[in-house]
Structures are given as structure tokens and as C-alpha cells.
């Protein structure tokens, strides 16, 4: 195999991986504030995409307006989810909250199916499908745009978590009771993390909707997103970005080697192997927070 082809696989893998990161950042945001992997992130991403498509093609708004409006709607939805569903569960075992997010995912899928039906709709961002040439290497433009969005969000959240509200969110993630004791509103903090994750879901939904069409399959991104988040360490945004790139490259390059041997379909195998091995070998992921034990 020639080097240019390998480089092309790696670069496009990394870009696809950053799109997984885009999704995983949403998971990390919620995990950071409530220590729960949000199984509804796939559903939120799908709803985010549908809302933007509905605003753009059904209402007829231009995309530059539809996307921010969709983000505002999803921001409110995220807060609403905390208010209606999660608040009752504060302080309950994490497993119950996990089940709630699973239920929420099924619910969101049901709602979109009922409103918009099962046929795939297109996003139509207007990004050209002409590949971009970098020397001899083909690069997909939409993937490049998506990777840019992922990195932009990464930088924005790194700054956010150093601000006062960001520090309060991290405090909430550390200890609910201690947060209450100094007057931090845990409920509002968790709500904010859901709201921000829902906005991230709009970004992921728009980009992935453009790539694979807006339909129920968008919610299945959860599997790859979760793998990236776990590999990165679940509570590390930097981890989500780095792990996304790693998984993207392994998946793209690896499947090119393996597919001829197993006759295709090795992508899913690689993703599954990464998830299982991470949990077995390094449960905190690459950058995840360890529980501090003083010696």
C-alpha cells in the first residue's frame, strides 16, 4: 500500500473522528455535572437535526437563522428535561438516572417518528461535495467543516470551564451535598449542562444530518460517541477530542486492512473492541479523572 493512500485514510479518519468528538462533547458535558452517561444524547442529536430541517424547509427560514433558532429551542428543551424529569431523581442511585436517559432516548425517537415519519430528509447546508485536494489526498469538505466546528466547541468549553459558572459546574460534579451547602444551585447547574449538551446536539445533528441524511439512524451515533467519550475518559473534553481522532484513524485505517480479510463490516468490530478494551484495561480512559486517594 502506498503512503499517500495511508495518509488519506488517516486524515479522513481523523476528520470523521472529530465528528464523533462533536457528538461525544455533549456526553461529556452531562457526565461532568451529573456523573451519568447520557444515553439520550443520540435522541437529542436527532431531534436537533429535525428541528433545524423543519425550521429551514417547512417554515422556510434561511439556514443561518434556522440553526441558531434550533439551538435556542434545544437549549430550552435541555433545561426542561432537567426540570420535568431529572430533578425528582437528584440524589437517587445513578442507575435510575441512567435508565431515565434510556427511556428519554426511546421517547425522543418515538416523538420524531410520529411527527416527521421515517423517511430520510436532507439537511442541505450548501457545502460542496467536490472533494478538496491536499496534494494527492482527497478530503471531504463537509468533514472538514464539521471538524472545525468540533474544535471550535472544544476551545469554547475549555474557556467556559475556567469561568465562574464553569467552575461551579465542576464543583457540582465533585460533590452535590457540598455544593448545596455553599449555596450552589445543583438543579440549575445540571439543567445548564443538559442545555449546553442539547446545543452541542444541534451542531452534531446538523453536520451528521448533512452527511448521512436526517432520519432515525442519527440516534445510533450514540454508540460511536459513547465509545469516544469512554476512551477519552467520560469527563474530559480534551479526552473526547483526542479519543475521537484516535478512534477515527484506527477505524478507517484498520477497516481498510481488515475488510478484505473478513469480507467487510469490520468497522463496527473495531469500535466495539475499542470500547470493551478501554473499559477492561483503562476504565478512566485516556484523560479521565481518577478518584483521588491520599496516601
Amino acid at each position: 500500500m502506498d503512503l499517500v493512500f495511508l495518509a488519506e485514510l488517516a486524515i479522513n479518519g481523523a476528520l470523521t473522528g472529530l465528528l464523533y468528538s462533536l457528538f461525544a462533547i455533549g456526553l461529556v458535558l452531562i457526565y461532568k455535572a451529573s456523573s451519568v452517561p447520557n444515553l439520550a444524547q443520540g435522541g437529542l442529536t436527532m431531534v436537533g437535526a429535525y428541528v433545524v430541517v423543519a425550521l429551514a424547509s417547512d417554515v422556510g427560514l434561511p439556514l443561518w437563522l434556522a440553526i441558531p433558532l434550533g439551538a435556542v429551542f434545544m437549549f430550552a428543551l435541555g433545561f426542561g428535561i432537567e426540570r420535568v424529569a431529572l430533578r425528582r431523581l437528584a440524589g437517587r442511585p445513578v442507575v435510575m438516572i441512567l435508565m431515565l436517559t434510556l427511556g428519554l432516548d426511546i421517547f425522543l425517537r418515538g416523538v420524531t417518528l410520529a411527527i416527521w415519519g421515517g423517511t430520510s430528509r436532507s439537511m442541505d447546508l450548501g457545502v460542496s461535495y467536490e472533494p478538496l485536494f491536499l496534494g494527492d489526498i482527497f478530503i471531504s469538505r463537509i468533514h472538514l467543516v464539521g471538524a472545525g466546528v468540533a474544535i471550535g466547541l472544544f476551545v469554547a468549553f475549555m474557556i467556559f470551564f475556567r469561568s465562574r459558572s464553569g467552575i461551579k459546574l465542576r464543583a457540582i460534579a465533585d460533590d452535590y451535598m457540598a455544593s448545596w451547602s455553599v449555596g450552589i444551585s445543583v438543579e440549575r447547574g445540571v439543567g445548564l449542562s443538559w442545555a449546553l449538551a442539547s446545543v452541542v446536539a444541534v451542531a452534531a445533528g446538523v453536520i451528521w444530518g448533512e452527511i448521512q441524511g436526517v432520519d432515525q439512524a442519527l440516534s445510533l451515533l450514540l454508540l460511536k460517541g459513547l465509545t469516544v467519550a469512554v476512551l477519552g475518559g467520560l469527563d474530559s473534553i480534551l479526552g473526547a477530542v483526542v479519543a475521537g481522532i484516535i478512534l477515527g484513524i484506527i477505524e478507517n485505517v484498520g477497516s481498510d486492512f481488515l475488510d478484505p480479510l473478513v469480507g467487510g463490516g469490520s468497522r463496527e468490530l473495531i469500535v466495539a473492541a475499542v470500547l470493551i478494551l478501554t473499559v477492561m484495561i483503562r476504565p478512566h480512559g485516556l484523560f479521565g479523572r481518577h478518584d483521588i486517594e491520599r496516601v
Partner: peptide
Amino acid sequence: GRRVFEHL
């Protein structure tokens, strides 16, 4: 039990 925010 002190309960400081350990990761901060």
C-alpha cells in the same frame, strides 16, 4: 467530613 471539591 470536610467534603472539599477534590478535583478543583
